[in-house]
Design a protein around this nucleic acid. Structure first.
Length: 585
RNA sequence: CGGGGUGUAGCGCAGCCUGGCAGCGCACCGCGUUUGGGACGCGGUGGUCGGCGGUUCGAAUCCGCCCACCCCGACCA
């Protein structure tokens, strides 16, 4: 490609709304342009990088038996009504009516369509296992897009769906994806870790997320450097030490005027926060056969800990959970700031397992300005559910080895789910097994966002001058710079490099050397060749890797070979990282 | 949805308080000089000042409503 006619120019200054490094650099280098909140165009160079990323995905999916197909982005609502997600999902799913007044949806994901296809195409266990995938647009009307391509509303995703006769088959395909995903990220030059994850709205029994670690990330991960435990904070477990044994003391009501926070309570009574019980009120929505129902949830955790809403949601099997309003709390006779489960009716009481085991905690007296001393689980109150509902924090003890946990931020670039029969059963995607019995297909679903991956690669590979693309995802492999006195030779070299099969960006513009070199650094192609009067006098063509400071001169008649060899060497470095990763669930 | 912020040329910004010719840098076009790390000179192109309404002789500027975008939170893959 000749730069003189490339659509999309570089910019010296990033738009003021771009804050993260990847966003600024991708815009400045001419890879992306914003159309609306969370909606971006890919410019020609961005499209080339995305194509390379997606072709890596294709190769790895095909390698584990994937068959590429292409499913629609507009779906009739019927399908989503059949699985129930039409009713479960809120405004995140965009809906509209077609001219015949039929309800339609914009695809957020494709489990429904795959299950619909499977019920038509799969009849026998002899056809299974199968794996289908596509690379398609998704629309999720996220309430708050941010950070360029990191979190958007319209995005392209590689999503694959495994179809199996049983759980054992699913496990095989799940593990195949576990490895294939590491291969994809490593080939693309993106370092990731896998973590255990919540199954969320997808349903299912087991899930992993692939995380690129960066402070820009929105997910908090809990990691153990000692034993390798890794989990999303939403589900991360930790070891809760047994509190020192004490005899249950007499329940006693004390006046605590104006003391409505745990902090103030601990100070007022001169006790550690760990000797208090904290009340957190949430309103849960439950989906049932007779429609939705709402219930006030009264969660109790030790005063020095925080409630983990995902754990709480899972513990009570709620569809949704939100903080309760003050009126809702008062309606059951509790006083915000002075609440405890003692003597309360009308709420679903969920107590953390550590509170159950702790003696003589200070808790609210359900009366403005009063607390109880020495509350004890079992004697003074009982829970509807006792479960682990506490969020893991930095320094908490690892569940497995007891060493301190560490938290880190990350971007979720991929996920894999064991779905089971959630969708096949509701849509009737059945097959006949060897005994002639009808059974639902066992499904898995697996996703990687292309654009988010591009952004993470940009976030990882850059310096103060610009991007530094891995050879596998660079829009072009070679940046050929023509300077004064080298124009004719550069034009020849451009043709020779292309004949040799290389992707070349040729800066044939009439610009000063400084402008050209700075643009080359900003765009960040892995190999730079410069042809100028000076280089020719020095013996040929100047060769430089973007990531290195050194330059060398290669004779003109060896320039193509040297470049091809350099590309090969860079590819070999990437390939060396493609190794088996032990499966951990 | 709650809190905060910003909308003036492709990008970055000033002007607004105190109403009176719409400006600056970069980019872009022409000519000349220059050119191995964001050159210089001269001359140019480009704007319904986010939108609608109001106040006023007169609105980028004051008032009202709306819209868009960004950040934090809620939410979310």
């Amino acid at each position: 490609m000749k730069m003189s006619h490339m659509f999309g120019t570089t910019m010296r200054q990033a738009p003021s709304e771009a804050e993260t490094t990847s966003h600024q650099l991708l815009v400045r280098a001419g890879f992306i342009r914003q159309l609306g909140a969370g909606i971006y165009s890919l410019m020609p160079m961005g499209k080339r990088s995305i194509d390379k990323i997606e072709n890596i995905m294709r190769a790895e999916m095909n390698a584990i038996g994937g068959q590429e197909l292409f499913m629609p982005v507009v779906h009739p609502a019927d399908l989503w009504q059949e699985t129930g997600r039409w009713y479960q999902i809120g405004d995140e799913m965009s809906r509209f009516k077609d001219r015949k007044d039929h309800d339609m949806v914009l695809a957020m994901t494709h489990e429904e369509v795959v299950a619909d296809l499977a019920r038509r195409e799969v009849q026998s266990y002899k056809q299974l296992p199968m794996l289908v995938y596509h690379i398609q647009t998704k629309w999720r009307d996220d309430p708050r897009p941010r950070a360029g391509l990191i979190r958007v509303r319209e995005f392209t995703m590689k999503d694959s769906y495994s179809l199996d006769a049983d759980e054992a088959g699913l496990d095989v395909q799940y593990r195949a994806h576990y490895q294939a995903y590491f291969n994809i990220f490593r080939r693309a030059g993106l370092p990731v870790i896998s973590v255990g994850a919540d199954v969320g709205m997808m349903g299912g029994s087991l899930a992993h997320e692939y995380m690129y670690l960066t402070p820009v990330g929105e997910d908090t991960l809990v990691l153990c450097d000692a034993c390798g435990y890794r989990a999303n904070r939403q589900i991360a477990r930790f070891r809760k030490d047994q509190p020192a044994a004490e005899d249950a003391a007499v329940l006693e009501k004390v006046a605590t005027p104006g003391v409505s926070t745990i902090e103030a309570l601990a100070n007022f009574l001169s006790i550690p926060k760990a000797k208090t019980a904290k009340a957190v009120f949430m309103t849960a929505t439950f989906k049932g056969d007779e429609g939705d129902s709402q219930k006030l949830v009264f969660a109790v955790v030790r005063g020095d800990m925080e409630v983990n809403e995902t754990k709480l949601t899972n513990a009570i099997q709620a569809a949704e959970l939100r903080p309760a309003h003050e009126e809702e709390i008062r309606a059951i006779g509790a006083a915000p700031g002075y609440a405890s489960p003692i003597g309360l009716q009308g709420a679903l009481i969920v107590v953390d397992e550590l509170v159950e085991r702790s003696a003589n905690l200070v808790a609210g007296a359900n009366e403005e300005g009063f607390h109880y001393l020495n509350t004890n689980y079992g004697r003074d109150y009982k829970a509807d559910i006792v479960a682990d509902i506490v969020a893991a924090e930095d320094g908490y003890a690892c569940m497995n080895c007891g060493q301190p946990l560490r938290t880190s931020r990350g971007v979720e670039v991929g996920n894999i789910f064991k779905l089971g029969t959630r969708y096949s059963a509701s849509l009737g995607a059945n097959f006949l097994d060897a005994e002639g019995a009808e059974r639902p297909v066992v499904m898995g679903s697996y996703g990687i966002g292309s654009g988010r991956m591009l952004a993470c690669i940009a976030e990882e590979h850059n310096d103060e001058k610009g991007l530094i693309w891995p050879i596998t995802t660079a829009p072009y492999e070679v940046h050929l710079v023509s300077l004064r006195g080298g124009e004719a030779i550069a034009a020849e070299l451009y043709e020779e490099l292309r004949i040799a099969g290389l992707d070349v960006l040729f800066d044939d513009r009439d610009e000063s050397p400084g402008v050209k070199f700075n643009d080359a650094d900003l765009i960040g192609l892995p190999i730079r060749l410069t042809v100028s009067e000076r280089s020719l006098q020095a013996g040929g063509v100047e060769f430089k890797l973007r990531r290195d400071a050194e330059r060398s001169i290669v004779p003109q008649n060896q320039a193509v070979r040297a470049t091809v060899d350099a590309v090969g060497a860079l590819l070999a470095e990437i390939e060396a990282a493609i190794v088996p990763v032990p499966f951990e669930d």
